[in-house]
Design a protein around this nucleic acid. Structure first.
Length: 317
DNA sequence: AAGGCGGGGAG
DNA sequence: CTCCCAGCCTT
């Protein structure tokens, strides 16, 4: 539960979870749906499924007893190097390092690591450091103390260096770099793309195409759809008609009316004025990757559009 | 090496 | 709004 989730948030979930599943065997025997139910609101639901699977693995392979060697714990689903090290160092005082959000920040500042510490080069340095500072005994206590130090003193913003017991060893502090370390992760850059799908109808049927391999939604069925640059008529109309023609070989003309719907979706009430059809794909003609379908048959296809029965939406004239 | 996962909380 | 949180897994 603590993977990427704050301690305060986890507390109540944890208590409720352990009340429902007091031990590994009961968790293993539970319905997945029940497990997910108790996870609702925590996010990263993969963790819940993996915890469930881990419990089942412990029952199947470890006689229902939680393993106590690093390799076995590390091999459990959802358990990485941090989690395995934390479990065994904190509960059994095994000499295993941990590196997580708090200690990434604390250790980066202590050693004055100036690059992004979450990248692999930084991780290598930090894990090495985390291992070096472990004492022969009481590694669990040291790990625990370092996380507390990171969360309460060596905070992301405005760390309390005046109260820090290791401020004298802190490179960032000595070089006045506390505010520059750790370097923030470079953000994934996203480009907004506006797409339009066109529902082409004729004689109560609607034109769909199957997305090609390598394309998004490969293998699923979709309406003719394309990224569009323009947002307003008449340029947008030209873009859409060209996209449909290119994608399906079907020539259409869009109607004038336009209604803006909620959820950022713009719906065109299109009127089909004419066809200048490619004989292979024209009205009524179907190929392996392109069909004219009755609206009621749409619900039987694996469709790129999900969430509502598409046929209900299209029933409107 | 990069992205996806998913909420809530703080500033 | 943005940043951050006791990471892990797949591609």
């Amino acid at each position: 539960m603590l993977q990427q989730t704050q301690v305060e948030t986890v507390k109540s979930y944890y208590a409720r979870f352990l009340k429902a599943f007091p031990n590994v065997k009961q968790l293993a025997a539970a319905e997945e749906e029940k497990v997910l139910r108790l996870w609702e609101g925590l996010g990263y639901y993969r963790r819940a499924r993996q915890l469930h699977a881990a419990a089942q693995k412990i029952v199947a392979e470890h006689d229902g007893k939680f393993p106590t060697d690093f390799e076995s714990v590390f091999a459990l689903p959802g358990v990485g190097r941090y989690t395995a090290g934390a479990i065994l160092s904190l509960s059994l005082d095994q000499r295993l390092p941990i590196v997580e959000a708090n200690t990434i920040r604390l250790y980066s500042r202590l050693i004055g690591y100036r690059d992004d510490p979450t990248k692999s080069a930084g991780q290598k340095v930090l894990w090495q450091f985390a291992e070096e500072i472990l004492p022969k005994k009481n590694s669990g206590e040291l790990n625990s103390a370092m996380m507390d130090l990171g969360s309460m003193i060596c905070k992301p913003q405005d760390p309390l260096c005046g109260e820090c017991p290791v401020a004298g060893h802190c490179t960032a502090r000595l070089e006045n770099l506390v505010d520059e370390i750790p370097l923030p992760k470079q953000k994934t850059k996203y480009t907004d793309v506006t797409e339009a799908a066109v529902v082409v109808r004729s004689n109560g049927k609607v034109l769909v195409r199957r997305c090609a391999q390598g394309e998004r939604w490969a293998g699923l069925w979709d309406f003719p759809r394309a990224a569009v640059e323009s947002r307003t008529d008449p340029k947008l109309h030209r873009e859409l008609t060209a996209a449909v023609k290119k994608q399906t070989g079907v020539a259409i003309r869009l109607g004038e009316k336009m209604t803006t719907m909620r959820h950022g979706v713009t719906r065109y009430r299109i009127t089909l004025h004419c066809f200048a059809a490619n004989p292979a794909t024209g009205p009524g003609k179907s190929t392996a990757d392109q069909k004219w379908l009755k609206i009621s048959d749409l619900d039987d296809l694996p469709l790129s559009v999900t969430g509502r029965k598409i046929s209900e939406i299209l029933q409107q004239p």
